[in-house]
Amino acid sequence: MDWLNYVDEVPTLVREYGINTLAALLIFFMGKWLARRVVNLCGRLMNQRGIDPTVGGFVTNILFMILLMMVIIAALAQLGVPTAQFIAVIGAAGLAIGLALQGSLSNFASGVLLVSFRPCKVGDYIEAGGVSGTVKLITVFSTTLVTPDQRTITVPNSSVMGGPITNYSTSPSRRLDMVIGVSYDSDLAKVKALLREVVESDERVLDSHKPVQIGVLALADSSVNIAIRPWVATEDYWPLHFDLHERIKQRFDQAGIGIPFPQMDVHLSRSETSAAP
């Protein structure tokens, strides 16, 4: 009978396919173990070279997936599975996924550049992507900022790297730019002397860093604008900004110096029409 012929062929089939199956399993487990060792070695090398852990983690994960895919293809080839078609399917799937996730891939590439070149770091106050705030978290896909009023803003990394990045925390000191308007009938020498007295009397002003600049900035429509430019430690920027404006207003009131405000004068004229003959 035919089934007796199949029974007679069982030992041959077991030897043929059993050996291939064992070889495929051996290739898979040994290859996976070797891939893990290679990935761990690459991770240690990147840590020794000071590469950002975020970048290192993503690079090692991608490397492991590539090596694991190669191991799976080798194991399937040992079983006699036609791997050429399998590779073509993987390539087509990878292309489709890449097209579908091109925005995410752009954020990924921007994130790698962001943590590699470090235009900013956690704790810096920056302006980027049309928003400003303190950097709370940098991931490969997005950057999280916290605004001074405690709003949390998550910005895609492509938006951060796609435009200018202004970092206010890279220098220990900043220049405080202030503009104060006074009336045209004010004594400018007296105004400048009073401003210098108010500014230089504050201990937070870095007199030894750079001299305080005080001068006429512009002759505006209704005021003479005076520019005051002291240097201050970065952490004292906003406290000094608020305090100086308040103290200048108080001193101007004591000295009788007026601070003009925009106003409009309307003149009405009445023309007499002659009576008709």
Rank of each mutant, 00 (worst) to 15 (best):
E9P: 01
V131H: 11
A227E: 07
V89W: 07
N5W: 02
M70R: 00
G103W: 08
N61H: 06
R37I: 01
G162F: 06
Y168F: 15
D243T: 08
N5L: 13
L268M: 09
S142N: 15
I248G: 01
L68P: 01
A23Q: 10
L219Q: 08
V205N: 02
T144P: 03
A109T: 10
E246W: 02
K210Q: 15
G18L: 08
S201Y: 04
I19D: 07
R196A: 06
I214C: 04
T152G: 00
R151T: 12
I126C: 02
F29G: 03
R37T: 02
L188S: 04
V205A: 04
Y237Q: 13
R204C: 05
V71E: 09
N61M: 13
S169G: 09
T134L: 07
L194A: 12
R175W: 05
S132P: 00
L194V: 07
H209V: 14
T143S: 11
S173T: 15
M65N: 14
V266R: 09
V160C: 06
A88F: 08
V205I: 15
A227S: 13
F141K: 10
L63M: 13
H241F: 11
P230A: 06
F261D: 05
M1Y: 02
G80M: 03
G162N: 09
S104P: 00
G129Q: 03
K136V: 10
I62D: 07
D253Q: 14
V212D: 03
R49E: 12
P53Y: 01
K190I: 10
S110I: 04
I62Q: 06
A24E: 02
M70C: 08
P82A: 13
R196T: 06
E235M: 06
L95V: 14
H267A: 12
A275T: 14
T273E: 10
Y125F: 14
A189H: 05
S159V: 07
S186P: 02
N47D: 13
Q254L: 08
G130I: 03
S269E: 13
I126G: 01
G123H: 04
S183M: 05
F29T: 10
K190E: 13
I73N: 06
A275R: 14
I19T: 15
N225A: 07
E200Q: 15
P260I: 03
W231D: 12
L206A: 10
V212P: 01
N20W: 00
M70G: 12
P119E: 06
R204H: 05
T139Y: 01
D253T: 10
F141S: 15
G130D: 05
S110V: 03
Q150P: 00
S269Y: 10
Q263C: 09
R44K: 14
G91N: 00
